[in-house]
């Protein structure tokens, strides 16, 4: 059954039940508790109707996020690189992530999707402790890489970030030369013994990021002079120059045009041979194209984790289904 097939009857049924019902569902993503309080009856009615038409969902599921307790699907892996257990993240008093448990396997590309504000970026940033820099941010639970607790007091965050690299939403090369950009990581971590070594690391990293051919003639020109797509590949080259074990990508293509996006996606596939990659994306097509497993987040909760193909063809949870068929997000 294709996603389109499941969606159509559901929509039709909703319309039959109440003319305004689909709108209410859409509203629910932004202000679920409010909607629930003011119009509980209308909402429940929608849920019931959906259940009747989409019988493949397990009993106990509901479109109401407050009812959600357990992540469905295959969250855990036997070959885990990173294991996260019962993660809660708070910004001051506000809880951004609720009790998330998930594994990321070795050499896997894990995509995280979900509507805006669902906490997927926040979750990604707990993996290399970038949230440490945010005032008032608090992380609870266990995050381990190869069995080592990342939030142990002894662990130096500098070492962690050398092992878990990151690529950001907006290309952010340093305002220095292309060469300096890539050489920065190896330099500060003392990875290169000589100038020749460093040149080699820079060339290899740029090659792996498939940027070498385009920039080899102008290594000493500013990195900010490149096009957006090239800048983002430069940032990837910079990240892989320190040979991290895991690369985190926070919507790496959201500022790029389709051609540049295609190049990055191709690159992600190549990189997955050597690295473990966690990628947050707003584009479901991108998640479908590049990832092995997909995790669906909704309002700070992890709803479903399954192999990508399954998520996009036969989602286990009706919230996932609602999202991938475009009814919210």
């Amino acid at each position: 059954m294709s996603p389109a097939d499941t969606a159509k009857p559901a929509k039709a049924a909703s319309k039959a039940a109440s003319k305004s019902a689909p709108k209410k569902v859409a509203k629910a993503k932004s202000a679920v508790p409010k909607v629930k309080k003011t119009e509980p009856k209308a909402k429940k009615a929608v849920a019931k109707t959906r259940k009747a038409v989409a019988p493949q969902f397990k009993a106990g599921q509901s479109l109401d996020i407050d009812d959600h307790q357990i992540t469905v699907g295959k969250s855990f892996s036997d070959n885990a690189k990173m294991t996260m257990r019962n993660i809660d993240v708070y910004y001051g008093d506000k809880q951004a992530i609720h009790n998330v448990s998930i594994d990321i396997a070795k050499n896997e590309v894990m995509a995280m999707i979900g509507p805006s504000g669902c906490g997927k970026s926040t979750f990604l940033r707990t993996l290399n402790r970038m949230n440490d820099t945010v005032e008032g941010c608090r992380v609870e639970g266990d995050i381990c890489m190869d069995g080592e607790n990342l939030y142990a007091p002894k662990l130096d965050v500098v070492e962690l970030r050398a092992r878990v690299g990151m690529v950001f939403q907006k290309p952010n090369p340093f305002p220095k030369s292309i060469y300096e950009n890539v050489a920065y990581g190896p330099k500060i971590h003392g990875l290169a013994d000589s100038r020749v070594d460093l040149d080699e690391i820079v060339e290899n990293s740029l090659r792996k990021a498939s940027l070498w051919e385009e920039v080899k003639e102008r290594l000493h020109q500013p990195g900010t002079g490149l096009s957006g797509g090239q800048q983002q590949r430069l940032c990837i080259a910079r990240a892989i120059a320190v040979s991290p074990e895991v690369i985190l990508m926070d919507e790496p293509c959201s500022a790029l045009d389709p051609i540049a996006t295609a190049k990055i996606e191709e690159l992600i596939e190549e990189l997955s041979e050597n690295f473990t990659i966690a990628i947050v994306t707003h584009s479901m097509q991108q998640a479908a194209r590049v990832s092995h497993r997909t995790a669906y987040f909704h309002l700070g909760k992890l709803i479903e984790v399954n192999p990508t193909e399954q998520v996009f063809t036969m989602p286990e949870h009706q919230l996932t289904e609602a999202y991938i068929t475009g009814r919210f997000g």
Binding site: M130, L160, R161, G165, M166, F168, N172, P173, I188, V242
Partner: peptide, 17 residues
């Protein structure tokens, strides 16, 4: 811009660096 700070921290630079 904060993006430059994030880039540096993300590369494993210490705050001082």
């Amino acid at each position: 811009p904060p993006s430059i700070r994030e880039a540096a921290l993300g590369m494993g630079a210490s705050k001082y660096q």
